[in-house]
């Protein structure tokens, strides 16, 4: 329940309020914080819509996305990697995409946050209001109260680096049960294409989406094996929990299949295309 509402005039003022107000929360699009599940949680809402940059820009290899950008704007933005657009469209309900923001997704940092796996494999950095920028993983490692306010996301998308993203959800407009993003460069080696600098992040298997270095090591530097081999190698490394959306056994198998699909997509040269078409 929102007990108090603040509309600061600047991001800096919002940061000050965040540090000083009891039960302070940052209110961006509100698509998570204002849902009825938080109806009984006291909140002092600090409205930051309009205070944070919302531009989505690409300058050569560098991509900068304002934390105030909505998912819909991200899905429509030209020049973004296809995988990032897929991640934005993973939130399949347009009404929600029109409100949900990039900053909100980073801030909420849910297990199945749509964008976070991509930012993890892009090794994105989050610029912050009045504080030093942090890497996506560093941000997650900080206690929530110490993170401050993310102002923008910046990452490199060099031509040589491919990205891929997929999710598993029960229906099209469901919150994802599992998410997976991967990124790598490929080079010819031993008659095949070997993945270099492979990065894998998954959501739905832990309280927050995270990188899986153990998986990255499995497939680094060699031609990617077939889907069945990937599944067999990866499944034992997952420790999901049973819940209403599936048993641990199912989720383990499904996560392995998801990873195999993402790596297969990554190996496809079309993975890095940057479509202009709007959804």
């Amino acid at each position: 329940m929102v007990n108090a509402y603040f509309r600061p005039k600047s991001a800096e003022e919002a940061a000050t309020l965040l540090a000083s107000e009891k039960d302070a929360v940052l209110l961006a699009g509100g698509t998570y914080l204002l849902t009825s599940q938080f109806a009984k949680k006291p909140m002092a809402a600090i409205a930051i819509s309009g205070l944070l940059p919302a531009a989505i820009e690409r300058h050569g290899e560098r991509v900068i996305i304002g934390a105030g950008a909505t998912f819909q704007a991200l899905a429509e933005a030209p020049g973004m990697p296809k995988a990032l657009r897929d991640a934005a469209l993973a939130m399949a309900d347009r009404n929600i995409r029109n409100r949900a923001t990039v900053g909100g997704n980073i801030g909420a940092d849910k297990s199945c946050a749509s964008l976070v796996p991509f930012f993890l494999v892009a090794e994105a950095r989050y610029s912050r209001v009045g504080a030093l920028a942090l890497g996506a993983a560093e941000w997650q490692a900080l206690p929530a109260a110490e993170r401050g306010i993310a102002a923008a996301v910046e990452f490199a998308a060099p031509t040589a680096r491919r990205f891929a993203y997929e999710r598993y959800a029960r229906t099209s407009c469901d919150v994802a049960v599992l998410t997976c993003a991967a990124s790598a460069e490929f080079e010819t080696a031993g008659g095949g294409l070997a993945a270099r600098g492979l990065r894998i992040a998954m959501g739905g298997l832990s309280p927050h989406a995270r990188r899986f270095p153990e998986l990255e090591r499995l497939f680094e530097g060699a031609a990617l094996p077939g889907k069945a081999a990937i599944e067999a190698a990866a499944a034992p490394l997952f420790s999901p929990v049973s819940d209403a959306r599936g048993s641990a056994e199912f989720k383990r198998a499904r996560a392995a299949a998801l990873l195999a699909d993402v790596l297969a997509a990554l190996a496809n040269p079309e993975a890095n295309e940057t479509p202009e078409a709007r959804p």
Binding site: R7, G30, L34, A47, N95
Partner: peptide, 15 residues
């Protein structure tokens, strides 16, 4: 001009 769910918008945000 954007389609949104009004149950997820604080009235104050409409200012």
């Amino acid at each position: 001009g954007k389609l949104v769910n009004s149950c997820l918008v604080l009235a104050a945000e409409a200012e």
